[in-house]
Amino acid sequence: MVLGAGVGRSAGSISGKMMGDAVRSVLPILTVVAVLLGVWMLSVVPMNIHLAADQAQRDGVVVVPDTPIARQDVGAVALALRNPAVVPMTYVLDRPRLPGPQQVAAELWKTTFGVKVTSKKSLVYHGWVTLSATLLGFAIGTTLGIALAVGIVFSRTMDLSVMPWAIASQTIPILALAPMIIVMLGSLGIQGLLPKAIISAYLSFFPVVVGMVKGLRSPDGMQLDLLRTYHASASQGFWKLRLPASMPYLFASLKIGISAALVGAIVGELPTGARAGFGARMLVGDQYGQPLVTWAALFAAAITAAVLVGIFSLAERASLKRMGMVR
């Protein structure tokens, strides 16, 4: 891959600096979040006004124009202006096209803390189903990825034959393999946690390989020469120089890997119509016309991803600080 400038996969240092900036940018961040929430709040009215007008009419409120068909011809904003009384109702619909933020938050709260953890309605229960597959797969994928990266760095043959494929794999939508892996393992009699974990594993595997190879190769000639003057063996060079030097790259890939693993586990729940997990909740909400369920599952998944990435960011900062790699 080209050594380009940028943020994302290939640039650990820039995103690291950005995390440092984030601490000093609380006010700007809050502003941006407030703007996003404001846009969301505003969009709720035009998205739901037709539904709300139908509902209001059933409840006996006078609505202009007075038939649903006539209302279809009126634009959302115009309808809201002509029926100001209906506007507040757009925020409290049971089955809104776009739920308000407070509805999503309430649903999240209710299904996380309001029901028993073992209940089929509890997001904690569904979250654990997805999270366990994610973590198991991530552990497998990361371990194999680091092992392969070590092999690639020490064996020229492996470097030549495997590395181009590892890089090419990043341009391929390997997530498309997910449904097949589920069915393939299903017909072998393997069900439940493991197929999803395998999808998570191969999604987190390739970023870790590519990042770790870059990291293990990051010591420059001067540092390698120094170790040679110390008469260090190859394994000493690995443990004392290459492995510590690769840590920033490892953490950058771990953060990409864990969010990829979570997406993998969620998508792995879709094709078989799994009954538990975030993906299953999204499907259920979608098929049974319960948008709040879908939205709550979506946000729960987003929060889970944020917490996982956040944990790795903290671990990254702590360990790099201890190692004296201040960035």
């Binding site: 943020v7 950005m18 940018s25 006010l27 700007p28 809050l30 502003t31 979040v33």
Partner: peptide
């Protein structure tokens, strides 16, 4: 001001 807010939120 906005840049400092958008970069971390976007990365998140």
């Amino acid at each position: 001001f906005l840049t400092r807010g958008v970069l971390p939120v976007g990365a998140f």
